[in-house]
């Protein structure tokens, strides 16, 4: 399916879909509340079958955080971006690690780098950063580390 067909197909199955324009791939905007159902649909629907989460990250927009999920269907070869806006002070979102196992590691990374709490994640603890780093989120824009950061 190309981009427009994919959009139409998803809108048919998920009528409340909101689309963001101007990107390379179709970009679906999600809300934290119905997000798990939407992801389950994307993963399990035989027409969509987005079984490959090839990239997952978070962007700090200073006012809010945006989770970005890049999905691909290995069978149909179409790609989709899902974005979810999160509250910056208390970011919480449902985990997707039961749908895509790779998300388990990626969510741990996002957890320690951005402080997003993934609900129902099986093993949410620090992956890369050493013990005792909780509370400081290196990839947020306001992170400062006078020792290890070199400003150019």
């Amino acid at each position: 399916m190309n981009r427009e067909e994919l959009k139409a197909a998803i809108t048919g199955k998920w009528p409340s879909a909101v689309w963001e324009e101007g990107n390379e791939w179709a970009t679906l905007l999600g809300e934290p509340e119905p997000f798990p159902h939407m992801m389950t649909l994307l993963r399990q629907d035989p027409d969509l079958q987005m079984d490959y989460l090839f990239c997952m990250t978070c962007v700090d927009w200073k006012t809010h955080l945006t989770m970005v999920y890049h999905l691909r269907s290995m069978a149909h070869r179409h790609e989709l971006t899902v974005k979810v806006k999160l509250d910056r002070t208390n970011p919480q979102i449902e985990t997707v690690s039961h749908l895509w196992r790779t998300a388990e590691f990626h969510e741990r990374e996002v957890y320690e780098m951005f402080g997003v709490r993934f609900l129902n994640h099986p093993d949410l603890r620090l992956l890369i950063l050493p013990e005792g780093w909780e509370g400081k989120f290196p990839l947020r824009k306001d992170f400062e580390d006078p020792v290890n950061m070199i400003r150019l």
């Binding site: 079984d51 490959y52 989460l53 090839f54 290995m74 895509w100 196992r101 790779t102 990626h106």
Partner: peptide, 9 residues
Amino acid sequence: EDAISYGCS
């Protein structure tokens, strides 16, 4: 299936 789910490439 696992290879896809775990994001292997």
